[in-house]
Design a protein around this nucleic acid. Structure first.
Lengths: 199, 199
DNA sequence: TGTACATCAGTGAACGCGCGTTCACTGATGTAC
DNA sequence: TGTACATCAGTGAACGCGCGTTCACTGATGTAC
């Protein structure tokens, strides 16, 4: 049977899921365990049947966040035409939907400065997550035959991360969406991808 | 005389200064009023002779942080040759010293995601601060005769903000400095500034 | 299949702690005459 | 210049609150025979 084990596993996954969600939205310090466990439908004392400490949860949540980003990479950057894939990846990564929903988007634009203040496993996982994105972009650029794909990929990732971060800060209505449009155009243009948009 | 007023003014400035320092280092939520007032050499109850609330201090500190950035802009981007000024601005903004000392650097790479979660004055000031940097870069690009300086300036600011943020996350020794070198080269290259480096 | 006991995910109350904020008080500074 | 009173930046203790963590307990699930 293992009915108990199955329920525990489900609870465990739900806690991580909810942490990944609300920490991207409010920052890693922005959610209390009490609220979090209530959202999962459990009482907050039960948390310690799953994690030894809050820090351990943060590390688990970061891992979970990058799994979502990895899925995105798999969708756009692993198979198919590299130029077309990268074009679509950029459109997705810098979409207005992503701007409005950090809770289900790549953690890099929402949590990087916090990550730079972390230590141990959480920090390492975040850093490793960034490397995964960089490597995937570099691979596409190399397949496209571009010069120095490693450096160019870094540059592109910097711009995309910065663009989403700053687009989220904009207060004026429509300004965030406008900044993202600029970023998409600029990134595509310098990768020679702008012609693809006219098909 | 106004000896009392002078002392109050000094204390007020010290509180903002220390807040601007430690909030860039640890995040706006990363410093308590008690520790902060101790660093200023006062007891923490005295805080409320200067600010109505902690939020008010955050707004004041953000204003202070951008004053430092504005000074940087004045130094590099207002007078003199625009290309040379921008070249030096990029070198400074993306220097390894800045990476190692967020406490005395531009708040954009260290606090933007937090800013996107703020409301009211603090949020508006942060957003206005970003605009100041963007406008200054755009002005230089226009003076250099580049196409669509507004969009290009956004793109460059995105990349610089993202580069510094991610360089600070890197764990491996020397990796952060390396990422910044890449970013400086890439930004200069796409602005046609790389030739200036050989003088 | 039925009974007796063991396990352990989850409950819910309590813990100490640091937080932002309040407040009665102090004593140096400032004002009035 | 001297005296009496007012001001108020700063003190230091206390406040309620939410935090992460602990713990005695429960009762459904699992195991042994």
């Amino acid at each position: 049977m293992a009915k108990r084990a199955a329920r525990k596993e489900r609870t465990h996954a739900l806690i991580i899921e909810e942490a990944a969600r609300s920490m991207r939205l409010h920052g890693t310090r922005g959610v209390g365990l009490s609220v979090l466990m209530k959202r999962v439908g459990r009482t907050h004392g039960g948390f310690y049947a799953h994690f030894a400490s809050r820090d351990e949860l943060v590390a688990a949540a970061i891992e979970r966040m990058f799994e979502a980003t990895t899925k995105l990479i798999d969708r756009y950057l692993v198979t198919g035409d590299p130029a077309r894939g990268l074009f679509d990846f950029i459109d997705h990564y810098l979409s207005d939907a992503v701007r409005r929903h950090p809770e289900r988007s790549c953690p890099i634009p929402s949590l990087s400065p916090e990550a730079s203040r972390m230590t141990g496993l959480a920090r390492e996982r975040f850093s490793a997550g960034i490397d995964i994105v960089h490597t995937a972009i570099a691979k596409s650029l190399r397949a496209m035959g571009l010069d120095d794909p490693e450096s160019l990929a870094q540059s592109v990732l910097f711009e995309m991360a910065g663009a989403m971060t700053l687009a989220r800060v904009a207060v004026e209505e429509g300004r965030g969406a406008e900044l993202l449009r600029v970023a998409r155009d600029q990134v595509k243009q310098r990768l020679g991808l702008d012609a693809l948009g006219q098909e």
